[in-house]
Simulated scan of single mutants.
Amino acid sequence: MAKKAPALTGVSYVMPVLNEVEHIEAAVDSLTAQDYEGPFEIVLALGPSIDGTNAIIDEMARLDSRIRHIPNELGSTPGGLNAAIRASTHPIIVRVDAHSVLPTNYTRIAVETLERTGADNVGGIMKAEGRTPFERAVAHAYGSPEGLGGTQHHTGGKEGPAETAYLGVFQRDRLTEVGLFDEDIKRGQDWELNRRLRATGGTVWFTPKLQVVYRPRSSLRKLIRQFVATGIWRGELARRFGTANSLRYFVPPIAVLGIVAGLLLGIIGSATSATWLSLAYIAPATYTLFVIVASSITAAKEGLRSGVWYLVVLPCIHFGWGTGFILGFLTLTKNITAQTGR
Score class of each variant (00 low, 15 high):
Phe290Cys: 10
Ile282Ala: 14
Asp182Ile: 00
Thr203Asp: 13
Ala199Trp: 01
Lys186Ile: 03
Val312Phe: 12
Trp205Lys: 12
Arg239Thr: 02
Trp276Glu: 15
Gly235Val: 00
Gly202Phe: 04
Val308Asp: 04
Pro252Gln: 06
Ile224Val: 15
Leu279Thr: 07
Leu314Asp: 11
Leu210His: 07
Lys222Met: 14
Gln226Asp: 14
Lys209Thr: 11
Ile297Trp: 11
Gln211Thr: 10
Arg198Asn: 05
Tyr214Lys: 11
Ala255Phe: 03
Glu183Leu: 01
Val291Asn: 07
Gly235Asn: 01
Val213Tyr: 08
Tyr287Trp: 10
Ser270Gly: 13
Pro208Val: 13
Asp190Trp: 02
Gly235Cys: 05
Ala283Tyr: 10
Gly269Leu: 05
Ser270Phe: 07
Asn245Pro: 08
Leu220Thr: 11
Asp190Tyr: 06
Ile282Val: 12
Ala294Glu: 14
Tyr287Thr: 08
Gln226Ser: 15
Leu180Pro: 03
Ala300Leu: 14
Ala271Leu: 15
Ser273Arg: 12
Arg305Glu: 15
Gly188Asn: 02
Val313Tyr: 10
Leu265Met: 12
Ala244Arg: 00
Leu220Asp: 12
Asp190Met: 09
Pro315Ser: 08
Val251Arg: 11
Gln226Ile: 11
Arg221Cys: 09
Ala255Lys: 06
Arg305Gly: 13
Val293Asn: 02
Arg215Val: 14
Arg248Val: 06
Lys301Gly: 01
Pro208Asp: 07
Trp205Phe: 14
Ala271Tyr: 05
Gly258Phe: 03
Val178Leu: 06
Ile254Tyr: 08
Thr203Asn: 07
Val204Lys: 01
Asp182Ala: 00
Leu210Phe: 03
Gln226Ala: 15
Glu302Pro: 03
Val178His: 03
Lys222Tyr: 09
Gly262Asp: 06
Arg217Phe: 05
Pro253Phe: 06
Asn245Val: 02
Ala244Met: 00
Pro252Thr: 03
Leu223Trp: 14
Leu237Phe: 00
Ile267Ala: 13
Ala300Lys: 02
Arg239Pro: 04
Arg195Phe: 05
Ala255Gly: 08
Ile268Thr: 07
Ala280His: 07
Leu277Lys: 06
Leu220His: 15
Val228Lys: 05
Ala285Lys: 01
Arg195His: 12
Trp309Asn: 14
Ile292His: 06
Ala294His: 12
Val308Gln: 05
Thr207Lys: 12
Lys222Phe: 08
Val293Trp: 09
